[in-house]
Amino acid sequence: MATEKFEVKIQKNPPESKLTELGVRTWPKWGCGPSKFPWEFTATETMFLLDGKVKVYVDGYDESFEIGAGDLVVFPKGMKVTWDVTKAVNKHYSLEK
């Protein structure tokens, strides 16, 4: 899977018990409409996508991967990407302290 070499962890449709254990529903929310923009993760970020679809391009690689509604995703600190939001995104997120 392409995400393994990028050190991105994706869990598709995790059980509600896992979301509760992590406190996902108490995390802040963020959203945006269809757009394309560069992003650098300045902290390890865990997110749970409530809605939407994003094609993620990691700097330095030709490949991309998609994340979408129902995905629990962990991006490592320092990763630089371009987000291509193809369907409006609404997500909960948590930044590692």
Rank of each mutant, 00 (worst) to 15 (best):
T44H: 01
F41W: 11
L22T: 11
E45T: 11
E63W: 09
D62T: 15
P76F: 00
G52Y: 05
D84Q: 12
A69P: 09
E66T: 15
A2N: 13
D71S: 09
P28M: 08
K29N: 04
W27H: 06
F37G: 06
E45A: 04
E96F: 12
L22C: 10
G78Y: 01
E21C: 13
V85W: 01
L95R: 15
V8W: 12
E7Q: 14
P14N: 11
E4L: 11
M79T: 04
H92D: 03
D59T: 07
T3Y: 15
E7V: 03
N90T: 13
K12A: 09
Y57I: 02
N13A: 15
C32I: 02
D62W: 02
P34E: 14
T86S: 05
W27E: 04
L22N: 10
V54A: 12
L49W: 06
G52V: 09
F65S: 09
L95S: 08
W39L: 14
R25I: 00
V85C: 05
I67P: 03
S17D: 13
G70A: 07
F6S: 03
T20I: 14
W27N: 03
F48N: 06
P15E: 13
V24Y: 06
V74G: 04
D59M: 05
F6I: 08
K55C: 14
K9W: 01
P34R: 12
N90G: 05
T86L: 05
T44C: 01
S17C: 05
F37A: 09
C32H: 00
M79H: 08
E40F: 00
G68H: 12
K55A: 05
S64G: 06
G33N: 04
T42P: 00
T44N: 03
S35Y: 01
W83C: 14
K97H: 11
K87E: 10
F37V: 04
V73T: 12
T44F: 02
K9S: 14
M47D: 06
A69H: 07
L72P: 01
K91I: 04
T86E: 08
K12P: 00
V56R: 05
V85F: 01
F48M: 04
S17G: 02
T42K: 11
V58M: 09
V73H: 03
P76R: 00
H92E: 05
S64N: 12
L50Y: 08
G31H: 01
V89C: 02
A88L: 02
Y57D: 06
L19K: 12
V24E: 10
G31T: 00
S64L: 10
K55R: 14
E4Y: 06
G31S: 01
A2L: 15
D62P: 00
G52I: 10
T26C: 02
K91V: 02
S35E: 11
F37H: 11
F48T: 03
K80R: 15
W30H: 10
E7T: 02
T82W: 11
E40D: 03
W39E: 03
V81I: 15
T44K: 15
I10M: 08
V58Y: 07
A2M: 14
A69R: 10
G31F: 02
V85A: 02
E45F: 05
V24F: 10
F48A: 03
K87V: 07
L22A: 10
